[in-house]
């Protein structure tokens, strides 16, 4: 397969765009016409050909531009990438997992040759050719987790497992839905989820933790999560909230289709072999409402989901103030027809 990488931005002039192919393969997160929290896990063992579920670490047309945006964010704020001292081995585990997966799944883009601990990694889209000694951090330009996650789309949390809990002890977080790694690092599973409304009372976190503690090597899992973002901005961090916050109030009935994006996270969960840590990639996909409604089923369904969503969830997801305009816009694409089960377009 050949991917044409977009030259695009996720800030300032926002030239991000989805091709017709990117729209078609978008991971639409709603399998029915309503939404409430659930532990919606399934095995991450491939998926429909061409879909973002097919490969272990999906690479798409936004890859090069997303990595450029990550580098800008890290230059401005190096605290977006942190690893507590006991997590270096997990960083090597993650590097190993991503390099092997990418080289096997996209042999035209990536290659990895291993001779004992002497490794040779080639990343053609980013123009990287690196020989290094596995498990020797002095042979890489930065730590192993930072090195590989500067070359992999999506945020990465690396969770230590001890005391029957998961601990957010390392991460690369530059495209987050408004949470701070710098504040949350070192927290356990219940602590970093504490601000989420309703879900704790529903027992969602207890069940999710139980599932995640038992994820086995070679049997990764996945789920989808979602929120709404104004403009195709990856760095919706609390750190920069005072900079991007005003953009949230620029939505009008005229521009809502272009400026309002559905933001979907493809979350996957991987047991790491040496450290027994859990890798938690959070891959972000963005689609404007006007692109989304080109798939009639999605337009109808998103209208119903957002119209009927409880107010506290809309507030938590940060779009309560724009909801009336969003729902009015989407209503034009909802003729009341029945929708088919499942997330895929008809």
């Amino acid at each position: 397969m050949t991917i044409q990488f977009n030259d695009e931005t996720f800030r300032d002039d926002y030239t991000f765009r989805n091709s017709a192919e990117a729209i078609r393969r978008f991971p639409f997160p709603f399998d029915r016409d309503s939404y409430m929290y659930s532990v919606n896990m399934e095995p991450h063992k491939g998926g429909r050909e061409g879909s973002p579920f097919e490969k272990r670490f999906d690479v798409d047309e936004h890859y090069v531009a997303e990595m450029r945006d990550r580098a800008i964010t890290l230059t401005e704020d190096p605290l977006r990438c942190q690893s507590l001292p006991h997590m270096e081995l997990a960083g090597w585990d993650l590097l190993d997992l991503i390099m092997q997966s990418k080289a096997e799944d996209y042999p035209d883009l990536f290659s990895l040759q291993r001779d004992g601990n002497q490794w040779h990694w080639i990343n053609r889209p980013l123009g990287i050719d690196q020989r290094f000694t596995f498990l020797d951090a002095t042979t890489l330009p930065c730590g192993p987790m930072e090195y590989i996650t500067r070359q992999a789309q999506g945020d990465f949390a690396v969770l230590d497992q001890r005391e029957g809990n998961l601990w957010m002890d390392a991460g690369m977080v530059t495209s987050q839905a408004d949470w701070s790694l710098d504040f949350d690092i070192g927290m356990n599973f219940f602590e970093w989820h504490a601000p989420v409304p309703r879900a704790a009372e529903m027992g969602v976190f207890q069940r999710a933790l139980k599932f995640l503690l038992n994820v086995q090597q070679g049997s990764p899992a996945r789920r989808l999560n979602w929120t709404m973002t104004v403009n195709p901005r990856l760095d919706t961090s609390p750190e920069n909230y005072h900079k991007w916050g005003p953009e949230k109030r620029t939505i009008t009935p005229e521009n809502v289709g272009k400026k309002q994006f559905l933001r979907v996270e493809l979350q996957t969960f991987w047991r790491l072999p040496r450290s027994n840590a859990l890798a938690f990639p959070i891959r972000c996909y963005l689609i404007s409402l006007e692109d989304l409604v080109t798939v009639p089923k999605w337009g109808r369904r998103l209208h119903r989901v957002l119209r009927d969503l409880p107010e506290d969830l809309a507030a938590y997801k940060g779009f309560a103030v724009n909801r009336p305009m969003i729902v009015d816009y989407l209503a034009r694409f909802d003729d009341g027809a029945e929708t088919s089960p499942g997330i895929f377009a008809d």
């Binding site: 701070s180 504040f183 949350d184 690092i185 070192g186 927290m187 602590e191 504490a194 601000p195 609390p238 909230y241 005072h242 916050g245 005003p246 949230k248 109030r249 103030v321």
Partner: peptide, 26 residues
């Protein structure tokens, strides 16, 4: 900056989180 007081607390920092209260409407 003018910050609102969250209950979200970091044991590592021994601090609560303050977030800009007028970010969207300066």
């Amino acid at each position: 900056l003018t910050l609102f007081v969250r209950d979200h607390y970091s044991r590592r920092l021994a601090a609560f989180q303050g977030v800009c209260v007028d970010a969207e409407t300066p």
